[in-house]
Structures are given as structure tokens and as C-alpha cells.
Design a protein around this nucleic acid. Structure first.
Length: 230
DNA sequence: ACCCAGGGTCATA
DNA sequence: TATGACCATGGG
């Protein structure tokens, strides 16, 4: 008995079945909400544990100041950068993170050559940058570089734990590996999937004790019941 | 006046 | 390996 019991009856693994349900409920998402590689990377750092609406204000400030550029960020005084991104929260520490990231990015001989790095090498390099953890690195890999990497965030843990498909407290890379194994290398689908998960987490799959009206409720019951009977 | 948000680092055991 | 403190603004 494994997670694919549903597959033989319905066609598609649990990963694809949940995807279909989310897509049916929320429609196409069209992520990442940004223009250009650098803006995506900046957004990935600024949105750490922060509502996107706050990040939008910070990015608008950077744009208006002509600072949506690695060189410009490195030239700006520390305090000026911090004040610009203030709406995104944790603004002092995030100013440092942006700076460290820009140091790494501009320090590369030719950062257009990142295109030719292997995904593993690029991921390792990103994780070596101060302020870039697994989720931020994977946001950048998937949305800025179109690499087949699945992003695991708090919503993913909550939704799939509630479905009974994961425990929820597993290490980041363990959950990521499971999704990537089930999905295969499909960056476009991975990006849309993560976007759907975020949308579902924001609007429907709220923290306990109460989840909202949810088209996945039947699936929740099915998987949880089967999980408990093992 | 709470709770929550598209995490990461660091110190400690 | 695994907890806990800390970082901070803005919306519900």
C-alpha cells in the first residue's frame, strides 16, 4: 500500500491528482510575478517570511530609485537601501542579504554564463550566499533560470500534511526529492504547481483550527483515512 | 489586541 | 540533528 493507490483508479499519481484539483479550483497563476531575472531574484529574497503585498511596495521603491540593479545596490549607502525596502519587513537584515547576493552576482566573471552551469552546481553556489536558504535558492533556480526544481514552502508542508501525504516536519530536501521524483523534470509545471500551492494556502488552507471551503476536502479524507489504516 | 505572512542565521544542547 | 531567539512591516 502506497501513495499511488489513487493512481490505478484515477490515472495520475497523487502529485498530479492534487495538481489537477488545485488547478480546477484556482485557475492558471502565471508566476513569477516579476519582470526579468534580477527582479525575480530580489523578490525571492524580499519575500522571505513576508506577504507579497509588502514586497511589491519595496520593489516599487527600488524601481523608482533606479536601484533594481546589482551595481546600483552595491553603490548605495547601507541605510538608503534599508529604507527603500522597509515595507518588506526585516529591512536591515534583508538589506544585508541583498548586498551579499549582489556581491556574489556581480563577482562572477560573466553572470550570463550561469546559463551553462549545472542545476546542482548553481544550487550549491546559491546556498553559499549569505541569506539564501533552500527555498530562496529554489525560487531562483525555478523561476529565474527555469530549472526543474520544486520549491517547498510552509504552504506546501501545511497542505500536503493536511492531505496526509507527508508528515510535514521532514527535512526540506526530503520533501523536495519526493515531489521531483513524482513530477519529473517539468519546470513549467513545477512553477505553476508551486504558484497554485501558494494561492491555495493564502485563500483556503488556513492554519488550524479551521480550513476554508475546499475542493480538496474529499481528497483530504481519502488520503488521511488510508494513511491511518497503515 | 491579536494572528499571520511565498525564511534564514545563529547559538545552544 | 533539532529546537529557540531573533529579525519587522502591514493586512485581516
Amino acid at each position: 500500500m502506497n501513495k499511488d493507490t489513487y493512481r490505478s483508479r484515477n490515472g495520475g499519481s497523487w502529485v498530479n491528482r492534487v495538481y489537477g484539483a488545485l488547478r480546477a479550483q484556482h485557475g492558471p497563476q502565471a508566476w513569477w510575478p516579476a519582470e526579468g531575472r534580477f527582479e525575480i531574484m530580489v523578490g525571492a529574497i524580499l519575500t522571505q517570511n513576508t506577504a507579497w503585498s509588502n514586497v511589491e511596495k519595496a520593489i516599487a521603491n527600488l524601481k523608482a530609485a533606479g536601484m533594481l540593479d546589482a551595481g546600483a545596490i552595491l553603490q548605495a549607502p547601507d541605510d538608503e537601501l534599508a529604507q527603500l525596502i522597509r515595507p518588506s519587513g526585516y529591512f536591515r537584515i534583508k538589506a544585508r542579504r541583498l548586498r551579499k547576493f549582489c556581491e556574489w552576482y556581480t563577482g562572477l566573471r560573466e553572470y550570463r554564463n550561469l546559463r551553462y552551469w549545472s542545476t546542482a552546481k548553481l544550487r550549491h553556489a546559491l546556498l553559499g550566499v549569505y541569506g539564501v536558504g533552500p527555498e530562496t535558492a529554489d525560487d531562483i533556480l525555478l523561476y529565474a533560470f527555469n530549472r526543474p526544481v520544486f520549491v517547498i514552502d510552509a504552504y506546501t508542508r501545511r497542505i500536503f500534511a493536511r492531505l496526509g501525504l507527508i508528515g510535514g516536519a521532514e527535512p526540506y530536501d526530503e520533501i523536495r526529492a519526493e515531489f521531483e521524483r513524482e513530477l519529473g523534470r517539468q519546470p513549467g509545471r513545477m512553477g505553476e504547481y508551486h504558484a497554485l500551492i501558494v494561492q491555495h494556502g493564502k485563500l483556503v488552507c488556513r492554519p488550524e483550527p479551521r480550513c476554508g471551503a475546499c475542493d480538496l476536502r474529499a481528497m483530504c479524507r481519502f488520503y488521511k483515512a488510508r494513511r491511518h489504516s497503515r
